[in-house]
């Protein structure tokens, strides 16, 4: 029979926390929240491409980010940690959940779950793949056709002129939208906040934030492809 004694030391307690499904979900939610905030900030940064002096603005922005190596790496490490924790924890939960129902139903019909919530395990991994590609594309330049260090404007415009790259960005950003539609609401529930009075409000907030982030980002490759952005670069 299962036993359940309260853990003793602080460390044991946190480990116990992480060993439980709820603790794991908490980790997913907290890291998810950090990633969510990052995507908002990042999108705002990216949208500077619509400013009249876009090339300069983006370069200054990049310089600002790179002003202090320590700070940059601190942020990078924090983000990376969150990202890794998010993904690793999700992978663990995924295995647990698979093991909880080894034999699937002959017929299963969803009643209340949303498309977004059911596809978290699809949108998530696509995002993982996207980020890896994205870093090699716009940060290191490894997969970029004509990468110029510290000139994001150039990199973006030339990068997105390749239809296949843009298409992948657009797909990935749609996935991000889906992921956040469920994720942002879910994160409150996982951290223990749910109240009938705010339930609909939170849902709407999550959907709106997800839509803004994904559409805001999608607009960039679309505008580049349509030739609206990057007229000055030949």
């Amino acid at each position: 029979m299962a036993t359940a004694a309260a853990p003793n030391s602080k460390l044991q307690q946190s480990l116990a926390l992480y060993q439980s499904t709820i603790g794991k979900k908490y980790v997913v939610a907290v890291t998810g929240a950090v990633l969510f905030l990052f995507t908002i900030g990042h999108m705002l940064g990216n949208l500077q491409i619509y400013l009249p002096n876009a090339q300069e603005a983006l370069a200054n922005y990049a310089k600002l980010l790179h002003a202090s190596a320590e700070l940059l790496w601190a942020v990078r490490i924090a983000l990376l940690t969150c990202f890794v924790l998010h993904v690793v924890t999700i992978a663990q939960l995924y295995n647990l959940n698979r093991a909880a129902r080894p034999q699937s139903y002959v017929m299963k019909t969803p009643t209340m779950s949303t498309y977004a919530s059911r596809t978290m395990y699809l949108s998530g991994p696509i995002l993982l793949f996207f980020v890896l590609y994205h870093l090699s594309h716009l940060t290191t330049g490894a997969t970029h056709p004509s990468f110029v260090e510290m000139d994001p404007y150039h990199n973006l415009v030339t990068g997105f002129r390749q239809p296949m790259a843009s298409l992948f960005y657009i797909i990935a950003m749609s996935m991000l939208g889906l992921h956040l539609t469920h994720g942002v609401w879910s994160m409150f529930q996982s951290m223990g906040f749910n109240h009938p009075r705010y339930r609909n409000g939170l849902r709407n907030f999550a959907t709106a934030a997800a839509a803004i982030i994904s559409l805001g980002n999608i607009s960039i490759p679309v505008c580049v492809l349509l030739g609206i952005l990057g007229k000055d670069l030949v």
Partner: peptide
Amino acid sequence: EEKFGSCTNLQE
């Protein structure tokens, strides 16, 4: 311990 899965807030 009883091997139930975790909640991903599906609401089913």
